[in-house]
Design a protein around this nucleic acid. Structure first.
Lengths: 196, 196, 196, 196
DNA sequence: GGTTAATCGAGACGGTACGTCGAGTCTTACA
DNA sequence: TGTAAGACTCGACGTACCGTCTCGATTAACC
């Protein structure tokens, strides 16, 4: 009976959010500014997102869909590929400034943490699962013993890869180039044997 | 000729900052509140720190001095020890909320990045250097070939350890317990041979 | 298209300003306090008035509307009446403290001076014009020769009356009572013949 | 540069205050700025004056010593002279901005009012007394009947002259020129007969 | 093909914190 | 011992955003 929400607005708002993140960074980004950029009233914005944190999570989340895991023939090459692909994503100013900020906020806000998990984290973890299955099919690593230990294994590998790349890129603030990716991959693959 | 700055105030302010971080978290922490807790005027606060970011970096920096690397007899045990010790630090609410937030800000502020590096990052890297030397003396890993590759090696190990622990603790939001530390250490030590 | 400004707020703010002037005086009056008394945000206050000076001018301006010039039968009696009526106004603490202060500020701020002129000064000058016309109708003073000299005459009389009353009330700080008003009126009327 | 300055300090401070009044006006004048201009510590300033109000009163008070009443041969000419002389004083920016401001403050501060009276007001009233005696010697006005009525008379004349000139100069903000002075004097002298 | 109700833009609203500035006091080093 | 230099507490400043609200104007779905 009533007028439905404008679908075009959603896109414009998320675009505006990313643009504002690039220009201003997380802390200088304001809801009013995003609304103005999107040619939308603040009301419209708040009708769809509870606040800045959630809006930003959604705005950067789609960027993580660009991550892929093309089959490069070996586990090591696959790891190297995803590392570089992830690093490329972390070079964008909007992911740099947004990612850490929302994680920081999420330490005090479980709902936000959940949103980050489904919108961002799981989009990466999927890659680990995929690569793992592929390597098992290739016979590079043994098949799962039981489900629980497999999950633990996935989590470990995920934290090591994502953590190392993020830490080098944002905390150490050094380039994740082909050399580093190669060395890191060798280290990871080498270690995988030890934790069987 | 003039009155010197109160040395007592510095301590009170940093204490107050940590207390406020625990209670309120990063985003709800205000300069006025910190000043009030410290029994100090806002002016005094701004006379000593340019802003919230820098103040918080200095406030949490000293916590990283609690990290130690007691000799546990083997490289693997040492890694396990530092992982757990670091994880303990990351369980504190003030480090959780502050660390990621200032890193997020630092992506747009080189001066802040430098402050984080000297006040926080280098305090951890020192542990890697120490553990490495100790392991070389034990003969667990070969001595340095040349200085440059040694530095690269240290950086890699550092990013992997710190990154993995931070990622598990704050992003994956799961406990870094003895089990995880042990498995992770085995993975790392195992991988070290591959990148020798 | 947008929400209109609350008309009720204007009244509440001006009331609050007068109340604050009575309690605190000009120099202790703060915008924040006025806002709080009016149950209004500081922003609302600044959205409508550029600053303390302008706000206070408007707040006391309406008081000058209470000045009237009832017909007492003769020019001298009319002058006496307006002198006492004006003196009564200057006995109020809010006019005492506000009037001189804004005039002092206006010496450096032409826009403020203009505001004072239209909001306050002209409200008094009207009385002189009225009394003058009435006296001319009574035949107590000759009709205007030409417009310009009439205006000069009005201005002179106005400055003499207003100036003398304000000076006695605020600078000499002595009571403007019936006696003084009577003597002053006789002096003025007596003098008017000389400047014919 | 330490203690021998103590004697010269008073003069330097008052000079600095007047200079600051000219440049900045009353409301923008700050104690720190005055101290800096005078090459003096704020401490020294507060040791000698209780606050801004009192300092400014003393700073402008000396200017009122420039008012004189040269004998121009007739009462009317004498009045004309003092009006113009007073007007000249009120053209200075430091008197304009300072005079009204301290009077405004004095409405809430009896001690300040007393200071203004002795430092400023009485310096003008002396001129009225002098001119009156002179006119009595000339036979232009009758000698005093009794002391009380004489005092009332002086006060009235004083309020009328000072009030009219100040009001025209600062409130009406129009020039007090020879023409105005002449017309005003005629009015005053003319009126004096009526209040005999 | 009107009716009607949610959505839209605009922007005013009550708040909270900002970072700065001035007042007036106090502490130190120097002369 | 008094003075300059300037750090101190306090409180107000005027601004910027927050998230909510009130508007009149615009749709789109339903009747």
């Amino acid at each position: 009976m009533a007028r439905p929400r404008s679908t075009a607005a959603d896109g414009a708002i998320l675009d505006a959010t990313r643009a504002a993140l690039v220009e201003l960074g997380w802390s200088k980004l304001t809801m009013g500014d995003v609304a103005a950029r999107a040619g939308v009233a603040k009301t419209t914005l708040y009708r769809r997102w509870p606040g800045k944190n959630e809006l930003v999570v959604d705005a950067v989340a789609v960027l993580f869909d660009t991550l892929e895991l093309p089959d490069r023939g070996s586990l090591e090459a696959d790891v190297e590929g995803v590392v570089l692909s992830f690093a490329r994503l972390l070079e964008r100013p909007e992911t740099q400034t947004a990612l850490m900020a929302v994680v920081a906020e999420s330490t005090r806000d479980p709902a936000l943490r959940a949103r980050i998990r489904t919108a961002v984290v799981d989009r990466q973890k999927r890659l680990v699962l995929e690569g793992r299955e592929r390597a098992q099919r290739r016979g590079e690593i043994p098949p799962d013993q039981d489900e629980e230990s497999a999950a633990r294994h996935v989590d470990l590998v995920f934290d090591v890869i994502a953590g190392a790349v993020v830490h080098r890129a944002l905390v150490s603030a050094e380039k994740v180039d082909a050399d580093w990716a190669s060395t890191f991959s060798r280290l990871l693959i080498g270690g995988l044997g030890a934790v069987g």
